[in-house]
Write a protein that binds this DNA or RNA. Structure first.
Lengths: 232, 232
DNA sequence: ACCTGAACACCGTTCAAGT
DNA sequence: ACCTGAACACCGTTCAAGT
């Protein structure tokens, strides 16, 4: 019915429907399929992080070789697009129609997305560099836009609101949670701020605690509430 | 006076003041120093992107070898921290005291930061994964916090507001601009949305234009205004 | 016809050997 | 004492050779 070719735009990096699943003939071992590869890849990324994850590591976990992976994915980037969409598929979608106001509904969706991202902090660096156009990303986008349009938002305003809130959630999450493994932790950063030259950095020192020790969820909700209130 | 050791916290990845500049003896060639290395590194990252940039490429541009770079930086990550801080040093700081309201002042600072990030889209992926604690990052933070405290914000609220706005600017920029080189461009994405199944994705299709063709600056300002209005 | 070992052209990092 | 060529242990990707 709908133009299928438009769903597979030029670059295979967006969302490529690969050709028919290859005949698996791996003696004794479970057959490789895209779902299983993505499952294991996500688990590895969650465990060791994007930096350490490699196709060799993935191939070993699958008892296969790196060349075999290229029969299912055109590149590592394309595999990562699938991993991101798998994570987006974990967002718990509650029934939006049953929620009184659109403010509550959009807040609920944003917090559900945030909660999922918190469970996969190592995936966040992958999410910021792409517009998620996998099936789950599309579904999420459609649901939120439908909600806003259904409450009388003009299309332009709905699109802008979706972009603002969506970028806020993902951008905030990657900056707040993406540093979890790499950079300094909160106590170290607090000590760093407190040890600064009090003549040059009095404001930073006085605000040091608020900059470092606010619970993640509360810090996130503060800015989200500002956005939602502003949309009124 | 102030505790210098606290300004060089444990991990050298934050902001390491390297030992005295090494004696340069590179026959005929200009001496290597940190400033020059960072200048050339930034130019290369701007030109070819983070993915393509490599220490070998940098060493060649400096007419040196990769091993020599390690006499100035402990790792590639540490070099990148300097590159990020160099970019933050380009933010044009206007006189905040002369601005009527704190709303105008914080909007002005956020837009100055955004304008700088637009000139260095390839640096953005480096910025999201670290809390910027280089000299320029510290100065920026101090200026904004001082502004808010000076207008009577309680320290906790000032810290939360700084985090919300700062994360919004950087998070938005990386998602809006960081895909410039990699992913699909706006016309491609528009065509993709329009080609979706109209039964499954009616809201996305109707909002397709607003999701893809809003000018960057306007899209950014929309969400920023929501945040600032909400802070009232 | 399908799979994959082995190679290719890289990478960040290190250190023994040079000057 | 300072510098760096060359190596080390990787990486993503490819393809000719296997089954």
């Amino acid at each position: 019915m709908s133009s299928t070719s438009a769903q597979r735009p030029g670059s295979s990096a967006w969302w490529a429907n690969r050709p028919p699943a290859p005949i698996a003939r791996r003696r004794g071992r479970p057959p490789l399929d895209v779902d299983h590869i993505v499952t294991v890849a996500l688990r590895l990324v969650d465990d060791v992080g994007v930096q350490t994850f490699s196709l060799r590591m993935l191939a070993e976990a699958l008892e296969s070789g790196t060349a075999t992976l290229y029969r299912h994915f055109a590149s590592k980037d394309e595999l990562m697009v699938h991993v991101v969409d798998r994570v987006l598929g974990e967002v718990e979608v509650c029934e939006l129609d049953g929620i009184a106001t659109w403010q509550e509904a959009i807040t609920s969706v944003a917090e559900a997305l945030y909660a999922t991202l918190r469970r996969h902090p190592h995936v966040l660096p992958l999410l910021v560099a792409q517009v998620p156009v996998g099936p789950n990303g599309l579904t999420h986008r459609e649901r939120v836009l439908r909600l806003l349009l259904g409450h009388g938002f003009p299309v332009d305003l709905a699109a802008r609101a979706f972009t603002a809130v969506g970028h806020y959630v993902i951008g905030f999450a990657v900056q707040q949670l993406g540093t979890a493994s790499a950079g300094p932790d909160a106590p170290q950063l607090l000590a760093f701020y407190r040890g600064l030259d009090p003549v040059a950095y009095p404001a930073t020192i006085s605000a040091a605690e608020g900059l470092t020790t606010v619970p993640f969820e509360e810090e996130f909700r503060f800015g989200l509430a500002l956005l939602v209130v502003g949309l009124n």
